[in-house]
Amino acid sequence: TSLYQSPRASGLSEHIARRASFAIVPAPILISVGVLTLIFGRDHPAGRWSERHHVPATEIATEQAHRIDDDNDEKIDEKKMQATAVNVEPVTIDIAVNKRLTFKTAFEILTNPVTWLPPLAYLTTLGVELALDSQFSIVLFGLYSKSIPGFTQTTAGYYTSIFGLLNVVARPLGGYVGDLLFRPFGTRGKKLWIIFCGMVMGAGLIAGGIYIEDHNAPSDSPSLATIMGVFLLAVTFSEF
């Protein structure tokens, strides 16, 4: 991209230019987000980490004779808890309560398959997008640098940047659709939406790869519009 080409035009090597490009824009953004998180972020939905037991779930658990441990492994004094108005329905509910982390609880968490579902889903969605963001410009440049006049690395980078720009629309829209499905179908609706998006994403990636492989001859180069359309579909559903 132009951010990479500028240091190269100044005489820097490819290795140094890439490192400089990362330091010029992404690194300051990451540091700024981290600082803002430290300033404005909260340790826990209840506020400070020391106040993590001052939530309705803990109060309900206390009423049901659950033992709640604080940092000193002592039972919480109910008088020290913040007054919270809670309407308790006479039904059996599953209450999530903060517990002190031990080797036993850590092992139980790590060996629970449910623990790995979110990271695996994130790996196969955001991971796909990041892989395309970082490598797809190389694919496009290799395919069209000779067949399309003026198709430079910068041009390939511009085409690839569309994948990142899609986040502005696809992420909020995907969440909105998930919320719509949650109202009539509950959690099952969201699960089916995630599975559907993953299947469309996978089908798009496979179709794009097969298309490039079948049109890789010099006399039969793949259509740029077709490639972008197929992979944009895959990336859109990965961002959903």
Rank of each mutant, 00 (worst) to 15 (best):
L123F: 15
L123Q: 09
L123I: 12
T124N: 14
T124W: 09
T124F: 14
T125E: 01
L126W: 09
V128N: 05
L130E: 09
L130C: 04
S134L: 04
S134F: 12
S134V: 02
Q135K: 08
Q135E: 10
Q135A: 06
F136E: 08
F136N: 06
F141S: 14
F141Q: 15
F141E: 13
L143G: 08
L143A: 13
Y144H: 10
I148L: 09
I148R: 05
I148N: 05
P149C: 04
F151R: 14
T154P: 01
T160E: 05
T160Y: 06
S161Q: 08
F163E: 06
F163N: 06
F163I: 03
F163G: 05
V168H: 08
V168G: 04
V169P: 01
V169E: 00
A170H: 03
R171V: 01
P172E: 06
G175W: 11
V177P: 03
V177Y: 13
G178N: 08
L181T: 00
F182K: 09
F185H: 14
G189V: 07
K191W: 08
K191M: 10
L192Y: 11
L192R: 14
I194T: 15
I195H: 07
F196E: 03
G198H: 12
G202C: 02
A203D: 05
A203F: 13
G204R: 13
L205I: 15
G208W: 01
G209I: 01
I210W: 13
I212L: 12
N216H: 11
